[in-house]
Amino acid sequence: MGETERDRDERGRARSARPRDGLGRPLPYGAAGVERQPEGVARTVEGTLAEAQELLDAGRPFHAHEVFEDAWKADSGPERELWRGLAQLAVGLTHAARGNTTGGARLLLRGAGRVADFAGPGGDGPHGLDIPGLVEWARELAGRLAGEAPVDPRAEAPRLRRQPR
């Protein structure tokens, strides 16, 4: 591919066709990458949360971000900012795992601020989300990131829902 040529999707929009690693970083053309999350998929709320948790648990927060981004872009109602905040938490973890700890911390705090607005009377959020736990996780991780080396995204993955005792 020449310097001035760009990859295009089927609609003609610029979109890199380069393979990606597990954290969404582009790899050289022809390299073996991980399969990308399909974009624009309509999922149920339960499907979104289950798929995102699976991806987070597998150490693939960039891909979880893509799942949340689909929900965010598809929702025109009051939960739109919830999905946006969850996407920011996942991409904040992505940046932290890539070694961009300053950007990661910034996104984690921004996402925590967004999701905090959805805490109900007992702290739980819509769809059984553990809003206090997510906010605490994001703030604690952001506080540890200053000058740190990249984090292990699998070891740092948050739990989206409160675990039964």
Rank of each mutant, 00 (worst) to 15 (best):
R159G: 13
L141E: 11
R25G: 09
G103A: 07
V151T: 03
G143D: 10
V135H: 10
F68D: 02
A112F: 04
A58E: 08
P158Y: 01
P153R: 01
Q163G: 12
H63P: 08
P38E: 14
R15Y: 00
A90E: 08
R36I: 03
T4F: 11
E148I: 06
G85E: 13
R144T: 08
L86R: 06
L89C: 07
L27Q: 00
G133F: 06
G133K: 06
R60S: 02
D9A: 08
G2K: 11
E46Q: 03
L82C: 14
R80W: 11
E39L: 15
P158T: 04
D70T: 04
A58Y: 01
G133I: 09
R161H: 05
P132E: 05
Q53S: 08
R25Y: 00
L107M: 11
L129D: 09
G33K: 00
T44M: 06
E148N: 12
M1S: 15
A119I: 08
P38R: 15
R161T: 05
G123T: 10
E54W: 06
E10A: 14
K73M: 13
R80G: 02
R60V: 03
L56E: 02
G40I: 07
G77W: 14
N100P: 01
D57F: 04
R106F: 13
P153H: 00
K73G: 04
L56D: 02
R154L: 01
A116C: 10
P121W: 08
T48C: 11
L93T: 04
D117Q: 13
E51W: 08
A112W: 03
W83A: 04
P126L: 08
L49G: 03
P28T: 05
F118S: 12
R18G: 02
A96W: 12
R25K: 09
L134V: 05
R106P: 06
A142W: 12
A146R: 15
G111Y: 10
E39H: 12
M1D: 13
Y29Q: 13
A149K: 15
D9E: 08
G47M: 04
R20D: 00
D152K: 01
G33H: 02
H65T: 11
A155C: 07
D57K: 14
P61H: 02
R6P: 07
L23P: 03
G113C: 14
Q53Y: 07
R110D: 11
V34H: 05
V67T: 07
P164C: 00
A52Y: 01
V34Y: 03
A146V: 15
L89M: 07
G33V: 01
E79S: 14
L141C: 10
G92S: 10
P19D: 00
A155S: 08
A71S: 04
A14W: 14
R154S: 12
T48S: 08
E69P: 00
R154P: 07
T102F: 12
L82T: 12
L55A: 03
G147E: 00
G104A: 09
L56A: 04
G59D: 00
A87N: 07
G92A: 11
G2A: 12
G22A: 15
T94D: 08
L109S: 10
M1Q: 11
E69W: 08
R161K: 05
R43T: 06
A116V: 12
P164V: 02
S76E: 15
A105W: 10
P38F: 11
G12L: 01
E51S: 13
R80I: 12
P26W: 00
P153N: 00
G111D: 11
G120E: 10
E136N: 13
